[in-house]
Simulated scan of single mutants.
Amino acid sequence: MDDFATSSRVFEDDNDAFDFNPLEDFAFDDIDDDDDIVSGILDDGPYSIPNADNKPKFKSVSFDNAETPEERIETLFNQMPTQDDLLLGILDASQTPIFTDDLEQKVEELKQHHHSVYSPMSYCRLLERAGAIEQTNNEGLPLKEVEVEPDKVVVEGVEYWKVAAAPDVYWTATPAGLAHFQAYQPMELLRQMVQNEPQYEEIFRMVLSATAADGGESVKNIDDLVSDDPILQSPRRYAMYFIDKLERAGGIQWRGAWVAIQAGKDFLAELNA
């Protein structure tokens, strides 16, 4: 019996162990304090409608810190270095008012070799937000300044005012956008590129020469062309280093292959002179 009592007592002690709460010494009373609850977008507002005031706010530090259109435009181009040609193409097309459909078609042509998730209008909205282009009428007057008079209609001898159709939307470069476009000088950028790394002048010339051929050139063939050059061994440089430099300076573009554009061809002629 003593053994049975002992075993029963052990079993009861084990049950006590199962009742042990490791968190009982911690207080969680503050979770009921409404003052500590952070409201969210799904929190109900009046009439059980989600509270729209709590929706997430998009914030770009770079844009928020930029006080002028010039600063915002510079920030945009710096953040999208591989899209320079496309953004500049939009500024070029909008030097005079261009109809929305025509601009979208132009951007589609510009982005056909860009693997980008942005739609044509997304690019336009980015430039608009930066202050580089704006929505206007066909005369270049900002839409916010266009006054649309209501139409007068007569129904069974009674005159009514009817809301007029919204004006067609055109896009026009702003003074800040035009200034940025006109300040873009790829020949100067290409010259500065070589001045910064004069030891690679011959490599830049070789890459430009290869990409100036009909149909352009692939990365592999460019790499085969330059990779054994002694100047590239220490520090080790590969073809993409020079392709990237030339693209950013406005000398070449990706069009299914790397192709020298007009500025690149002009600079190649200058190097060969």
Rank of each mutant, 00 (worst) to 15 (best):
K265Q: 13
W258I: 05
M193G: 00
P150D: 15
P150R: 10
K265H: 00
F4I: 15
Q185K: 15
V153Q: 13
L42G: 00
R255I: 01
F99G: 01
E128W: 02
E217Q: 12
G45F: 09
D34Y: 08
V259P: 00
F58M: 09
S60Q: 07
A130D: 02
I37V: 12
L86Q: 11
S234H: 08
N21L: 12
C124S: 12
D35T: 14
P46H: 12
R236A: 11
M193L: 15
Q233C: 02
Q233W: 01
N21E: 15
T211F: 04
L208M: 10
V61H: 07
L225P: 01
P235G: 04
E109F: 04
A66F: 10
Y241C: 05
E201Y: 02
I31R: 06
D229L: 07
T211P: 01
D64H: 11
Q199S: 10
F242K: 03
I203H: 00
F20V: 11
V219G: 00
L208C: 04
L189G: 10
P69K: 08
V146N: 03
V10P: 01
K162M: 15
V194Q: 09
E67N: 12
E24R: 13
D13C: 06
K220G: 09
T75L: 06
T75K: 13
V207T: 02
E247Q: 12
L23I: 11
D2K: 15
P167R: 06
S39M: 08
S39H: 08
I231L: 09
H180I: 03
E188V: 11
F204S: 02
I41N: 01
E74C: 04
V10T: 11
N21H: 10
Y170I: 04
K152D: 11
T100M: 09
L178Y: 04
V219S: 06
L110E: 08
E149V: 11
F11S: 13
D53M: 08
A132H: 02
A179M: 03
D102N: 14
E70I: 04
L86R: 06
L190I: 07
L271K: 03
L141A: 05
S234Q: 10
L127E: 03
Q185G: 00
T136G: 02
A210F: 02
I73Q: 06
D30H: 10
S119A: 11
E247C: 02
S119D: 08
A5E: 13
S8G: 10
S48Y: 14
Q195E: 15
S62N: 12
F242C: 03
K57Y: 07
L23G: 05
Y123A: 05
Y160A: 07
E108N: 12
T82V: 09
S234V: 06
G177V: 06
N78E: 15
K220A: 14
C124V: 15
F77S: 06
V163A: 14
A165N: 15
N51A: 08
T172K: 09
D84Y: 09
M1A: 15
